[in-house]
Every structure is written in C-alpha cells, then in structure tokens.
C-alpha cells in the first residue's frame, strides 16, 4: 500500500490518481499507523516551508518520518514535501526542516521567479528513478531549492539562473523538487519506477 500523507497541504487528488496509475492501493490519509507502515509514504507539499512544517508536525509527521527512515521504509517527498526533508530553509525566516537529508533550502538566483514550467534535468548515472526518462522535461513551480549535492546520494540537477537539486535518491528516501504528478507521461514513468522499487 502507498500512503499519501494528508497533513492539510494542497492538491492531493492529482497525486493520488497519478500514483494509482502505478499501484492498485493508494490511500490519502493522516492516520499515523497507516503512514508508518505503508510500503511507501508520499509527502506532498505546497506553499510556504514553515507553514508546511507546522502542519506536518501537528499531525505527528516528524515522528512518522523519523521512524520510517530508521526502519528503512521508502519515502517520496514532492516539492515543499521534498524541501522539508532537508535541515533548514531560508524562506521568509530561517526555519528548521526534518533533517533527513543534509543541506539547506535557499532562494534561487534567477531574474524571474517563481521558476514555473517545464525544464529538463541532468540525471546522475545510476539513477533508478529517472530510468527511461533521463531526457524528459518535468514540471517545476517554486522559488526555493536545495543547491548542494547530498554526499553519497544520487543527485539530479536542474538549471534555472543557477544549478540546483531537482531530485535526490538516498537509500530509501527519494525527493523531487518538481511535481511528477503534474509532469505528464514522463512523471507517470518516474512514479512507476519508484513504485517498482518498493
């Protein structure tokens, strides 16, 4: 079973449907037991970093995610749901993240923000997530991103004004700054790659 973590952040319907194309059992829930024990947990996120963290913490998200990491159970963070896995963010004021991934989330140095639309990525060789979609474009909508590669992980980058992290694959944690559930066929393939790895 795949659980999509419903902690009050944004559009979950598209995510649910997109993951349902790859897996027969997908639930949208904030139930701690289901979120802890599902084969895969999707952490979505829209809006401001600090607000997302607050909402996540209020439903026990910090503990659920820490436990899953300790038990090597797969997690897939999307957009701000990916950002909160890092240590800190400088959005508005400096805020603490979950610290599952090392590094900070910073404003992208580009003349035009948000970075909004389809952009191509540079997948690091050995990526399972991007298998078959290494040369596709994905849909981004954000102004902040992690910029430093995560040591020991597979780092996929994107360039907009400067280079930043588009996706990280580290042990059982996967995080994408873009929205695979909004990235058409390429996104569907990427989701299916992750589901197959569970």
């Amino acid at each position: 079973m795949i659980a999509i973590f419903d902690y009050g952040s944004g559009n979950l319907r598209s995510a649910q449907r997109a993951f349902e194309l790859a897996h027969s059992q997908v639930v949208v829930t904030s139930d701690p037991k289901i979120c802890s024990e599902a084969d895969g947990l999707v952490v979505p996120g829209v809006g401001a970093f600090a607000a997302c963290m607050d909402q996540l913490i209020s439903v026990g998200g910090r503990e659920i995610i820490a436990q899953r990491v300790a038990k090597e159970r797969p997690i897939f963070g999307i957009c701000v749901g990916a950002q909160v896995l890092f240590e800190t963010s400088s959005e508005k004021k400096k805020s603490l993240g979950l610290g599952v991934l090392p590094g900070s989330v910073e404003l992208i140095a580009a003349p035009l923000l948000p970075h909004m639309g389809w952009n191509n990525i540079s997948a690091e060789s050995g990526s399972k997530l991007f298998e078959g979609v290494e040369n596709e474009l994905f849909y981004f909508v954000h102004s902040y991103a992690a910029k430093n590669k995560v040591p020991g992980a597979i780092n996929t980058t994107c360039e907009y004004g400067e280079e930043f992290i588009a996706a990280v694959e580290m042990d059982n944690v996967v995080a994408t700054q873009f929205h695979p559930e909004k990235s058409g066929d390429a996104g569907a393939k990427l989701i299916s790659n992750w589901v197959k790895s569970l």
Binding site: R13, H179, D185
Partner: peptide, 11 residues
Amino acid sequence: VRKTAEQVFIP
C-alpha cells in the same frame, strides 16, 4: 475541476 484533475496530469 475534480474530473479533469483525475484524468489529466498537467497543471
């Protein structure tokens, strides 16, 4: 909007 978001995976 509901029906569209369930069937079309672009923004």
